[in-house]
């Protein structure tokens, strides 16, 4: 039987932080994803171009490099901007905000593609029926596209979420006390790295397994009337 040498509560705190970072990032990623998808499908060329540049850049650069770029680059940028606006103290970026916005920004690009595909999968006749009965285009989106795209989006969304949860491990490098960093500290102090990283691995696995279960339930719910399980 292995012992956590009193580091149990600390690892637990880290796990909570990991969950907080994950959920906050997911929220941002979903907002960016739906906006990005609508922009990509928009009739306005400028919106299509902006969203295309966004997804091309984000999906083409490693998450780790992006995170370092945004964290350190953002730090430099803000501290050059500060004095111009008459603010002279050194500004430290809150690592939680930096981590969440970076991960949200990265996964917004993946969500954009997932949501775009899901919107395209809704058949044209379904939307046309809404239009024909006097719905505005916003109402067609809210009453028909949105509920129908969920079913198509869920598998890709689930994948993105699982990868996102694992990507939060990177926030430890910018100084956020997530469970990976807590485990690293404990491993250093007790010289038992295997024990602590094993605990972290199991924690991730618990989170992702639970997620997979919840996603299955959601898929079932949003397939009502369309496909039997």
């Amino acid at each position: 039987m292995f012992s956590l040498h009193g580091y149990g509560p600390s690892i637990f705190e880290g796990t909570i932080l990991t969950l907080e970072v994950s959920l906050a990032s997911l929220f941002i990623a979903m907002l960016l994803g739906i906006s990005g998808a609508l922009a990509k499908l928009s009739r306005a060329r400028s919106l299509r171009l902006v969203s295309q540049i966004y997804t091309t850049i984000i999906r083409g650069i490693p998450d780790l490099v992006l995170m370092l770029l945004i964290f350190f680059g953002g730090q430099v940028f803000i501290n050059q901007l500060g004095p111009m606006l008459g603010y002279d103290d050194y500004i430290d970026i809150n690592p939680f905000i930096a981590g969440v916005s970076t991960i949200g920004f990265i996964f917004g690009a993946y969500m954009t593609e997932t949501f775009r595909g899901a919107i395209l999968a809704v058949s044209k006749g379904q939307l046309e029926a809404g239009t024909a009965y006097g719905m505005s285009s916003f109402m067609v989106f809210r009453r028909i596209t949105l509920p129908q795209m969920v079913r198509h989006a869920l598998p890709g969304f689930g994948n993105n979420w699982l990868v996102l949860v694992k990507t939060t491990a990177l926030v430890s490098i910018i100084g956020l006390d997530d469970m990976v960093r807590k485990a690293g500290l404990a491993a250093g102090a007790t010289r038992k790295p295997f024990t602590f990283y094993l605990v972290v691995a199991i924690n991730y696995l618990l989170i992702t397994t639970l997620s997979i279960y919840i996603l299955k339930q959601l898929e079932r719910r949003y397939s009502v009337g369309v496909r039997e399980f």
Binding site: Q126, E128, Y133, I144, Y222
Partner: peptide, 22 residues
């Protein structure tokens, strides 16, 4: 246009009932 469409119901070849609704 929306007001006028609401006065003109349409029945489609492919039915186009909304599949997520009863």
């Amino acid at each position: 246009v929306e007001r006028i469409r609401a006065k003109l119901a349409m029945v489609f070849q492919q039915f186009n009932l909304w599949s997520h609704m009863t």
